[in-house]
Amino acid sequence: MNIPKITFIKMNKKEYILIAGLLILGLLSYFFMYNIEPGAMVKIEVSQKLYGTYALNKDQEILVKDSKGVILCTSEIKDGSIRVKSSTCTDKICIKEGEISSSGQTIICLPNQVVITVINEKEQIDGVLK
């Protein structure tokens, strides 16, 4: 079998600069976007529609269904964090994602379009004046 001659282009300065730029961009956006604070509430959306909000400090199991009533997944709130216990989706990535508890963290089940986000519902209260 004859194979065309491959022209190997060496990595050059331009490419290194581009790679460095991308990494800096990525790290900078890390820097700005993440602050880790424990969340208070959890929001579940199905196909971009709010399915419900639940308090993270109350242990419970939530059955998530779509608009036709078909069960999509079962999620469980326990000890201040939420996880997907079982799911009808194909890849089960949502189950593998495990527990989340910090504000802004998400579990996304793409096949079923279920998005679970940890939020600080109203606003986090820093202290109580007695």
């Binding site: 991308l22 990494l23 961009l25 990525g26 790290l27 900078l28 956006s29 890390y30 976007m33 993440y34 802004g104 998400t106 996304i108 998005v115 986000t117």
Partner: peptide, 13 residues
């Protein structure tokens, strides 16, 4: 939701 993953996406890509 997508933006939350953007920095991760860039670095891992």
């Amino acid at each position: 939701i997508a933006l939350f993953y953007l920095p991760v996406i860039i670095v891992f890509s």
